[in-house]
Amino acid sequence: MLIKRTPAVRSSEITDERDYLRRRDFLKAASGAALAAAAAALPDRPLRAAAAQEPLAPIAPSPFSTDERWNSFRDITSYNNFYEFGTEKEDPARHAGQLRTKPWTVRVEGHIGAPDADYALEDILGPHALEERVYRLRCVEAWSMVVPWVGFPLGDLIRRFEPTSRARFVRFETLFRPSEMPGQRRPILQWPYVEALRMDEALHPLTILAVGLYGKTLLNQNGAPLRLVVPWKYGFKSIKSIVRIQFVENRPRTSWNVSAPSEYGFWANVNPHVDHPRWSQKNERRIGRFFRQETRMFNGYADQVARLYTGMDLRRNY
C-alpha cells in the first residue's frame, strides 16, 4: 500500500546519507553558527511540540551516542510498532497523521514532593537542555535500528518532582483517544498502554525522554510529542505519546506483560541467552542489512547497566 497522505516531510528535507556520515565535521563547522542563529531566532520562546516536524535547536552531542550508521529517516518513520494505530508495521505512518498533539498535557502524580498536577508539555520540557542520543533500538521481534533521538535524561525530570522514598517505580501511560487512534477501538492490548521502570532504571543516565529525531520534533508514528527511550530494553518498554507519569510503590502491571506474561516480562532487558517463544533472541536483523547479526547482552549497553541487575536471575526475570 502506498501512503496516500502527502508526507509531512518532503524528501528534500531528509538528510542525505553522505551528509549524515560526515555529520561530525558538519557539527563542528556549523554548531557555532547554529547556536548563534538559534539564540537569535528563539530567544525566549518555549519549545513547541508539533504534529508536523519542526527543527529543534540547540542540540548538544552526547558521549553515549553510538558511532554506528544511522538508519534512514524513512526507515525510522515508516516501519513502526505502535498498535494504537494498527498492528501492521506501515499502519502507524498511515494513520498517525490524524492525532492532534497540540495542546498536550502530562499528568504527574504519586509519591512526589510536588503536588499532583497536569502540566502543559512546555512546562514539562521547560528547563531541559536537549541532547542528541544515537542509540541502538532492539525490538523483541528480532529486528533493530540505529536512531538519532533528541531528548533529555528522564532522571533530570524526575528530580524536579522530588520523589519520596516510597516511589519505587515510575509508571507511564500513553494517550487513550480512540477517535484519533483507530487501533484502540478494539481490545488488542490493554488500553491505555502502560509501561514502567524501576526507579534506578528510570534514573539511569542512558534513559531519556525523547522529543525528536534527526534534529526535528517527533512524527506521531514515533510517539510524538513525548516518548521514553530505554536503549538496553526491548522496544516495547519505550512507551510513546506519554500523558501520565506516576510515581508508585508497587511494580505496575504493564500492557504486554499482562497480554502474554510468558512471552513479555516486566524487565524486558535485551538478552541473547533467553529466547522468546516465537523468536530466537540470539541474533537480529539490522534494518537495511541483509545478514543477521549477533544480539549483544543489554543491547550492547552492558558496561553501563549490568550493575543494575547484579544478583538477579535474568533467566527468570526476563
Binding site: S78, K89, W143, G288
Partner: peptide, 9 residues
C-alpha cells in the same frame, strides 16, 4: 523500493 524497511519480512 516498495517492499518497506524490512523487505525480507
Amino acid at each position: 523500493d516498495g517492499l518497506t524497511a524490512n523487505p525480507i519480512e
